[in-house]
């Protein structure tokens, strides 16, 4: 790893003041689970590492009483804290379930909400120091016709076919979360549904933040106790593994039918994506194995897998089906 100057600002304003106007020279350090590994691979080579460990207030979960219930979660809240929060488990289960499934206990004790949302992608060509891929200034994406079994299946018009890496993005999108961001000019808000972008070159990240901006918190509001949500992911391994596909769902369960359905798909496209087709397929219907399976099929419409990852199309349909059944409190037929 290259050496650097380590800064320990006491305020978010001081941290933002140390950032540069272009990517690559300064990095914010939260849990470090992504950044430190990228530095060891010489993919990230910052001259300045800005530790957020002494910035006050980043690790708080604020929650209002009564309905609608509003949550504001600091970017520095650990994934382990999200997973253990009884308030989130009760009213925003999709987020707690997603956090609990991430990696293993050591990572969840280190990694933060903000780090998960702002992390770099997991493409092995991007992470390999020797591969000059599109995101590192090269002229081609090696995954397009290379080893692509873990890459995107929604690939139309994509120059780079990474799978979106954040597992907390999809639950936050279905919960209608908004990101609070600090820039040198002051605070601004970005809906999570507009927070991510598909990178196509070395000047891009996987999100829309400017190089001198910092994520402070995310907030969302749960209308009533009729709102049900869940996340479901498929992995090769029981734990400590990246999802092959992930689905998050949220809806109001009213008189046995689902209303205002939102379904988000993770790890299947360069950005986590809301699926209007899947939501439309189950809107206004009761949730059972048949309707949930139909929504799962609808979620795969438009998928154009690569040479090695057609299997992810089937997994995605199943993940959406199981997330819907979990949220509705149906019997988990897959658990024996």
């Amino acid at each position: 790893m290259d050496n650097f100057v380590y800064y320990r600002p006491k305020t978010a304003e001081a941290a933002v003041g140390l950032l540069d106007a272009k990517w690559g020279t300064a990095e914010l350090l939260a849990g470090g689970t992504d950044l430190v590994s990228l530095q060891k691979q010489y993919i990230a080579r910052p001259k300045k590492v800005i530790s957020l460990s002494q910035v006050q207030g980043l690790d708080q979960i604020e929650q209002s009483r009564g309905w609608p219930m509003t949550f504001k979660i600091g970017a520095g809240v650990k994934l382990a804290t999200l997973a253990a929060s009884s308030a989130l488990r009760g009213s925003a289960a999709a987020l707690a379930q997603a956090a609990e499934e991430i990696a293993g206990p050591q990572i969840r004790n280190m990694a933060t909400l903000g780090g998960s949302l702002c992390q770099r992608n997991r493409c092995w060509y991007f992470r390999d120091e020797q591969s000059p891929c599109l995101l590192k200034g090269g002229d081609k994406c090696f995954a397009l016709d290379g080893e692509n079994r873990y890459h995107a299946i929604f690939t139309q018009g994509r120059k780079c076919v990474i799978a979106s890496p954040s597992t907390v993005a999809t639950p936050l999108m279905v919960l209608g979360a908004i990101a609070q961001v600090l820039s040198p000019k002051g605070k601004r808000e970005i809906p999570l549904a507009e927070f991510f972008k598909a990178p196509t070159g070395p000047e891009d990240r996987e999100h829309v933040l400017a190089p001198d901006e910092m994520l402070l918190s995310v907030s969302f509001s749960i209308a009533s106790d009729k709102v049900k949500s869940a996340s479901y992911e498929v992995r090769q391994k029981l734990s400590s593994d990246w999802p092959l596909v992930q689905a998050s769902v949220a809806f109001e369960l009213d008189g046995g039918t689902a209303k205002n359905v939102r379904i988000a798909l993770g790890h299947v496209a360069p950005v986590p994506m809301l699926s209007a087709e899947a939501a439309k397929a189950i809107e206004g219907k009761p949730i059972n194995e048949e309707t949930a399976a139909a929504a799962g099929e609808a979620a795969t419409s438009g998928a154009k897998p690569l040479s090695q990852n057609g299997y992810k199309v089937r997994l995605l349909a199943v993940a959406v089906k199981r997330a819907l059944l979990t949220a509705a409190g149906a019997k988990k037929y897959w658990e024996v």
């Binding site: 050496n3 100057v5 380590y6 800064y7 320990r8 600002p9 001081a14």
Partner: peptide
């Protein structure tokens, strides 16, 4: 500075 501690390289 008052708001920042700088360490290294």
């Amino acid at each position: 500075g008052a708001d920042v501690v700088a360490i290294g390289p």
